[in-house]
Every structure is written in C-alpha cells, then in structure tokens.
C-alpha cells in the first residue's frame, strides 16, 4: 500500500467543457484516515474533480489515482475501492431501505452472507434499523442521506468521495452526519468531501479551496484563514449598496470591494488604503470595522485577488 502512495492522488488534472475550463491543473492528495474538504462556489470544478475520481469522466490531462489505480484506465478496479455519493444523492424512492441496500450490495458484488453482517453494522451506525421496511421516498431528508451513505459504504470502500452531502439537510441531521464521517475517518477511510458552506470548513483536518478549476489555497482551516495577508474591512448599514457602488466605480486603486449578502468586504493591504476607503465613504450611513478574516473571508479575498489578477 505504501508503494502506491496516498489513497487519493491527483496531479495536474485538467478538464474542460468546450471552451470553458472546469479543472485547470488541480493537484491534491488525501491520506488514509484523512478527511479533506473541497471548498468552493458552484462551478468551481468540485463535481468534475469527483466524477473523474470515480471514473465517470475522463480527464484531458494530468492523472488521478485511487488506491494506486488509474481512474481513467482502470476504472473498474477503482470502483471496487471507492464509494461515491453524487450531489443529488438519489435512491429509489419506491424501494424499501433494505431493498436499496441490497441492490447496491449486488451491484458491488457483495456476497449474501457478507451483506448481512455489513447491513447490520450500517443499520446500527445510521440508526436506520427500525425503518428497514420503509420505502426510501417516505424517509426524512436526513434519513435519506444516511441511507445513501449506507449504500455507498456497503462494499467497505477505502476511499469515500461525497459531493455536497449536507446540501438540503436540516441542521441537526447535518451535525449527526459529520459525526458519522469523523467516525469513518477514524476507521482509516480516506474521505474527500465537498461543500459550498464555508462554515463547515472548520470540520476538516485540511481544506482545499477551489476556484475556477484551480486550487487557490490549501492547508488546515486556521492556516488558510491566516494565509491571506490581506486585511478586511467589513461595511454594513443602510447605505451598504451605495458604498459598494461607490468603491467599485471611484474607490481608491488597489482595493477590491466584494458584496456578500448584506455586507461589503474590502480587502486591502496597507493602513493607507484603509484610511482612503474610510475617506471615500465619509457621509454614508454605514459602519466600517476591521475584521480578521475567516475562511469565508479568506476565500473571498483570494477569489477577489484572482479576479483582479486576471482582469
């Protein structure tokens, strides 16, 4: 195993849809028992990367390996070692919980005797035991998601790839789900989990920030947050939108104002820029505070930097 390297190994991966590059030279590694967060907005390339990993898409350049097997050329071997939960985790709503699990057990070639013991374990940790005979369509969102996870775990994969597993799931179920994933990592499974929620980033041992098909930052959540040397001014108040327009149209050079919901974040590097922003906004009904960047802010700062860098 050690000769093969990390369970997930991606190097210089490239893929485009027509003119649009979806992945532009992405490299990353996920070790045994590690849970890596793939973070980025819609269209960052998260799903493309995951689909390449499980052999659903063929990359144009670079390589992707799971347990040492090439994802493009040895996809059948890869599939034996990998569990993948697509973004819209979809089960058969008209089949019962047990039937769904059995179906995927059969597809993965899990024998009947083995299936029984694995099924018991999965039922236990997911709490789905009492709902065995219930149709999947009648489960709650959180339960459905646990069933989907159970179906991807039935062949005891060493690598688990989950595409936005917590999207559309209530807060309590989300917390439970993360605990289950932590447990799986402790058992030695390598997990790559994508999420659009920046507040979930803190749950990972390591995060990879993906933007427009490129890795723009990588490290522990704290490292990534600190990694941005820029400071942030947070502008809030009744005149937020006017402030944002003003800064974009005639603000001081070298700063970027990014609107984020009801706030505007201004990334800057020097105190001089700080005061020029404050001068520009004098007279507007907004509060301006200097905040230490969180992951979200780091992301926005990094993203903003990229955008002005290319524009």
């Amino acid at each position: 195993m050690s000769a093969r390297g990390a369970p997930i190994r991606v190097e210089g991966l490239r893929k485009s849809y027509g003119e649009m590059p979806a992945l532009d030279g992405v490299s990353l590694e996920v070790g045994k028992g590690e849970m890596i967060g793939l973070i980025g907005p819609d269209g960052a390339g998260k799903t493309t990367l995951m689909r390449i990993l499980c052999g659903l898409l063929v990359p144009e350049g670079g390589s992707a390996k799971v347990m040492g097997f090439d994802c493009a050329r040895e996809e059948r071997r890869v599939k034996e070692h990998l569990g993948y939960m697509p973004q819209r985790f979809s089960l058969y709503p008209d089949l019962t919980v047990a039937e769904n699990i059995r179906f995927f057990a059969d597809l993965f070639g899990v024998g009947a005797a083995e299936r029984k013991t694995r099924e018991e374990r999965l039922m236990e940790f997911s709490g789905l035991g009492p709902f065995r005979k219930r149709r999947a369509g009648h489960l709650s969102g959180g339960m459905k998601q646990k069933l989907a996870l159970s179906c991807t775990l039935i062949h005891t994969p060493e690598v688990l790839v989950l595409d936005e597993p917590t999207t559309g799931v209530d807060v309590v179920s989300r917390a439970e789900f993360w605990e289950i994933l932590d447990g799986l990592a402790r058992e030695g499974i390598a997990l790559l989990v994508s999420t659009p929620y920046m507040d979930e980033a803190a749950r990972f041992s390591r995060i990879v920030l993906l933007h427009r098909g490129r890795v723009i930052a990588e490290g522990s959540p704290a490292e990534v947050a600190r990694g941005s040397r820029r400071k942030l001014l947070q502008i809030r108040g009744p005149d937020t939108v006017r402030a944002w327009r003003l800064l974009r149209e005639e603000g001081p050079r070298g700063i970027e104002a990014l609107r984020f919901g009801d706030r505007v974040h201004v990334a800057h590097e020097t105190d001089e820029e700080d005061s020029s922003v404050r001068r520009a906004l004098a007279g507007l009904d907004v509060s301006i505070v200097c905040v230490s960047p969180g992951i979200e802010d780091a992301f926005i700062a990094l993203m903003g930097g990229k955008e002005t860098g290319t524009a």
């Binding site: 985790f89 089960l91 597809l107």
Partner: peptide, 13 residues
C-alpha cells in the same frame, strides 16, 4: 433524470 444512473455507474457493473 433522477441521478440514480450516476450512482449505478459508480459500481463495477
């Protein structure tokens, strides 16, 4: 349409 095909295709079938 429902995405279950994607799930099936990730198995070695």
């Amino acid at each position: 349409e429902t995405g279950t095909m994607e799930q099936i295709l990730t198995t070695p079938v």
